[in-house]
């Protein structure tokens, strides 16, 4: 004799169904909510990155910054230009926002030389008269500070690409990064090569048609419209080329290394 076990599926009353679905839904809701909260707490207290070229950010957030950089670098193009304006739109009272690296009062503009590392050992030494010989490029663009303010400013100088061509630094320009620092080495920036070679990147010696003033980085400063102001180094002392990220002042303080616009 065979017995058939009949599976009886209990028919739930609406009340029971409601209870059951309430239970499952709210349980899921609170479990996932708790997990999200836990994840957030973890991220908020995640360990800080090991200080190196970049420092001061938490490990996962630095990773995210670097990943976002990779994504947006795909969209970067030398054809994408910062918008330019007529000269009369430029500010006459140009904002000064920092003096790190240019604080020494005994700095002598006349004895200033730009040192460029060429090849393995050679140091190219260039003075202002040399630089003024090179083709001059002017730009009136909206300067953007990482703090969030912006100002239309008028600068002129030699395009970095023209400088590189003139001084036969084409081999160096095949490397991945450019590093620049103030003569005292206290402020320094690292730039990815494609941003450095952007047609609007200028070694500037004039502001509003006049020589750059000391607080704006005389005699020669970097104007790089595809970057935040923090990368627009004042008073360039040295330029070097590298395949590794050169040190960068603000990237050591938790800021994005790329800081591209």
């Amino acid at each position: 004799m065979k017995t058939y076990k009949k599976k009886v599926r209990k028919v739930l009353t609406p009340e029971q169904k409601i209870k059951r679905r309430n239970f499952i839904s709210f349980l899921t809701f609170f479990v996932l909510g708790g997990a999200a909260f836990g994840g957030w707490k973890w991220l908020l207290h995640a360990p800080e990155e090991t200080p190196g070229v970049t420092a001061g950010a938490s490990k996962p957030l630095r990773r995210a910054l670097n990943k976002s950089e990779l994504f947006f670098r795909n969209l970067f193009s030398h054809k994408h230009l910062a918008r330019t304006y007529p000269i009369d739109r430029a500010a006459t009272d140009v904002r000064v926002n920092g003096d790190i690296g240019i604080e020494d009062e005994d700095f002598d503009q006349d004895n200033w030389r730009l040192s460029v590392a060429r090849g393995k050992k050679e140091i190219l030494s260039v003075n202002m008269a040399d630089i003024r010989q090179l083709p001059k490029t002017e730009i009136v663009f909206d300067f953007k500070c990482v703090e969030g303010w912006d100002q239309i400013q008028h600068w002129a100088g030699v395009r970095l690409t023209d400088f590189i061509a003139h001084y036969k630094l084409l081999e160096e320009a095949k490397m991945q990064y450019v590093g620049m620092a103030t003569p005292n080495g206290e402020y320094y920036v690292g730039l990815d090569m494609e941003s450095a070679l952007h047609p609007q990147t200028i070694l500037a010696y004039e502001m509003n048609g006049q020589p750059v003033t000391p607080e704006h980085g005389a005699p020669l400063r970097l104007i790089i419209p595809v970057k935040y102001g923090i990368k627009n180094l004042k008073r360039i002392g040295t330029i070097s080329f590298s395949n590794q990220r050169p040190p960068d002042y603000w990237a050591e303080q938790g800021y994005d290394y790329y800081s591209g616009l």
Binding site: R83, D142, G260, L261
Partner: peptide, 17 residues
């Protein structure tokens, strides 16, 4: 965030400021 790469978008929004 990327006012140069998306300058047309920035323009559409009335400029960076």
């Amino acid at each position: 965030y990327k006012p140069v790469q998306f300058s047309w978008l920035c323009w559409l929004c009335g400029g960076y400021h």
